[in-house]
Design a protein around this nucleic acid. Structure first.
Length: 638
DNA sequence: CGTATTTGACCTGCGC
DNA sequence: GCGCAGGTCAAATACG
């Protein structure tokens, strides 16, 4: 709405400019020897007809701002007194004014069209949002009454729309696929863990999100315990079965001895860690086999009980690439920067799970629409389960892939899209599977559309994210987060040393020219740590005081709990917002868009899981234009 | 002094 | 059962 308001204001200014232009022309004519023809012409252009009689008879200025008055007596006098040269000059001025007016008029028309389009988009989005809410509500009612007898808590909405999968069936096939495709790039990433991955927006207490998380729970539990209503999703409390998740509790979903799905993000990042919108505390570091760079272990500190952890490691082959692996589910609301990523990663997880649910998922090559905020911001990653009914705009991330290991599904998002042609993402991601045969997996190769495809909707997630977080205190949180990262830019000495050494070595050699300006711009934005702050500032400017979290911005973890509580209170005080934020509805949720390259399985289950979002298309990997157009078309479908 | 990071020890899971 | 590797814990250390 703020954008629209801005457009309206801008349009109003332009209209005012037009009026002023006409008025100035009228004054010019009135003050000199302007002919009545020109005056009429001007008036007609402006949509106002000035008849001859008015021009000749009226001696009083009209009260109407659009009416151009020419004193007759004065005009007659000027005809006699002003020379031809002066008349020509004024005619020239008149012509220039006409031209200016025409230009302004054209611009005005363009702005009108833009405004109409924005209004239409907004209306569409709003309708879509309400539709999602309605369907979520309906689903909650249905599942609570039939499928979830154990859930006594009304807050718990159980929805099986996402991730009811059975990966087991594909394990062998996946292994075979992986062994063929492996090349060693992801050797650093451990792909052994399985189960559910859900990071980000989805709070456990949130009904739909809880449901979604259960839906996203691991293949084993679903396949083997399909009849059991509650699917535990948390692995840290081992072997405990989920009973009921209560709203507002710090409890996390518990699950059996199942491992969680992981989402691995590969991104070129010159900072120690990706600014993913959360606050992390490092609790360990290990030298992983085959990689000189140590792997850092972080846990989320936004909430004391938050089980989400991540692993950060530089890629052995290319130390400019930072591999961040997320695991777990946030039990707290997330800032907008993190929320913007939630839908993307959840889409990736959903992709994995939907694929896994299929019995014929050998070697699926698919593209997953990724929130452009990932590519443009690289600041936030959340794994929130999505409502199957939501159909947010889709964005494509180059070189992203989903790889399901043997009972250890891993989603890999490759954001290192600078040189898609240099190495196939398929081969790149398959390497780890050969090196770790026990983790054989099917590599879901996402389309490697160039980053240019992200351009058209670059800020779309922020728009959506803001709509879902307008009471969230996003500004303060983001700024706080930025300050935190800046102040805690420390890095493991070895890792930093290795990386800095690498950067120094490649500083002169890695600056190969970009072939596409857009791609260069996208990369620049992605690598710019200040981009988030700019976006946050922009959002703040739109929202004003969006929430009560306008406190210290540069404080780190110390005040995070306070802010978290504020968010919790704020969100829970507003169930609608809270729900939407938890579902990622308002965060530019992205959905899977399976592309046709070697798509072996039609993914009936995937379609079932994402009836409205999953699309089959024939986009090619290198077709940035087609991807962009697809993005636009998807946006229109909202 | 409080908090975050470091780092060695310990635990766990998997393969042989 | 043993060894390896990943992952976690917690005391020590660093930092503001």
């Amino acid at each position: 709405m703020e954008n629209k308001t801005s457009e309206i204001s801008f349009l109003g200014n332009m209209q005012d400019r037009e009026v002023r232009t006409v008025e100035s022309v009228g004054k010019l004519e009135a003050g000199s020897s302007g002919s009545t023809e020109m005056i009429n012409k001007l008036a007609e252009v402006h949509g106002k007809h000035i008849d001859q009689e008015d021009q000749e008879n009226s001696s009083m200025p009209s009260s109407s701002p659009s009416r151009i008055q020419v004193p007759c007596a004065m005009e007659k006098n000027t005809k006699d007194e002003i020379s031809n040269s002066a008349r020509r000059n004024q005619e020239e001025l008149l012509k220039s004014a006409e031209a200016e007016m025409d230009e302004v008029k054209g611009e005005n028309e363009r702005l009108k069209l833009l405004l109409a389009r924005i209004a239409k988009d907004y209306q569409t989005l709003q309708m879509h949002f309400f539709d999602i809410l309605q369907q979520e509500k309906t689903r909650y009612t249905d599942t609570a009454s039939s499928n979830q007898p154990k859930d006594q808590e009304p807050e718990v909405l159980i929805s099986l729309s996402l991730g009811i999968t059975s990966i087991d069936q594909e394990v062998g096939k996946d292994e075979k696929k992986n062994s063929n495709l492996s090349n060693g790039r992801l050797e650093n990433e451990k792909l052994s863990s399985t189960g559910e991955l859900s990071l980000g927006l989805d709070c456990i207490s949130e009904p739909s999100s809880t449901e979604n998380m259960r839906n996203a729970s691991s293949k084993n539990s679903i396949a083997q315990e399909l009849k059991e209503d509650q699917q535990p999703t948390e692995i840290w409390p081992p072997n405990k079965l989920l009973k009921t998740v209560r709203s507002g509790d710090d409890e996390v979903l518990e699950q059996g001895p199942l491992k969680k799905t992981r989402v691995s993000v590969r991104a070129r990042c010159d900072t120690p860690t990706l600014n993913d919108g959360c606050q992390w505390r490092k609790y360990g570091q290990k030298i992983a086999k085959g990689n000189p760079c140590p792997r850092g272990y972080y846990r989320c500190t936004v909430s004391p009980s938050c089980p989400v952890r991540k692993q950060v490691q530089r890629c052995a082959d290319d130390m400019s690439i930072l591999i961040t692996t997320y695991e777990g589910t946030h039990d707290h609301p997330l800032p907008i920067s993190a929320a913007a990523m939630a839908s993307t990663t959840s889409a990736a997880v959903s992709m994995l799970q939907s694929r896994s649910s299929s019995s014929t998922g050998i070697g699926i090559s698919a593209s997953v629409p990724i929130s452009s905020s990932i590519a443009t911001n690289l600041h936030g990653f959340n794994f929130s389960t999505l409502s199957q009914t939501s159909r947010p705009p889709q964005f494509y991330i180059p070189n992203s892939s989903i790889s399901t290991s043997n009972s250890h599904p891993t989603v890999t998002l490759d954001l290192t899209s600078t040189a898609p042609s240099t190495s196939s993402p398929l081969g790149r991601f398959s390497s780890s599977f050969s090196s770790t045969p026990r983790y054989s997996a099917t590599c879901l190769n996402f389309s490697s559309s160039s980053s240019a495809s992200l351009e058209p909707n670059a800020l779309q997630p922020f728009w959506h994210g803001y709509t879902g977080y307008n009471n969230y205190g996003t500004s303060a949180y983001n700024q706080n987060h930025i300050g935190y990262l800046n102040s805690t830019g420390k890095q493991p000495a070895l890792q930093e040393h290795l990386f800095q050494t690498y950067m120094n070595m490649n500083q002169n050699t890695s600056q190969q020219p970009f072939k596409e300006t857009i791609e260069a711009a996208t990369k620049a934005i992605a690598s710019n740590p200040n981009f988030q702050s700019v976006v946050a500032a922009a959002l703040t400017s739109y929202t004003g005081d969006g929430g009560g979290n306008s406190g210290d911005q540069n404080q780190g973890v110390g005040n995070s709990s306070c802010q978290k509580m504020n968010w919790d209170e704020s969100l829970r005080a507003n169930p609608l917002i809270y729900q939407s934020s938890q579902n990622g509805i308002g965060c530019g949720s992205s959905f899977l868009n399976i592309k046709s390259s070697s798509l072996n399985s039609p993914q009936q289950s995937g379609l079932t899981l994402f009836p409205t979002s999953l699309q089959l298309s024939a986009a090619t990997k290198s077709s940035a234009a087609s991807a962009a157009s697809a993005d636009n078309s998807d946006l229109l479908k909202l």
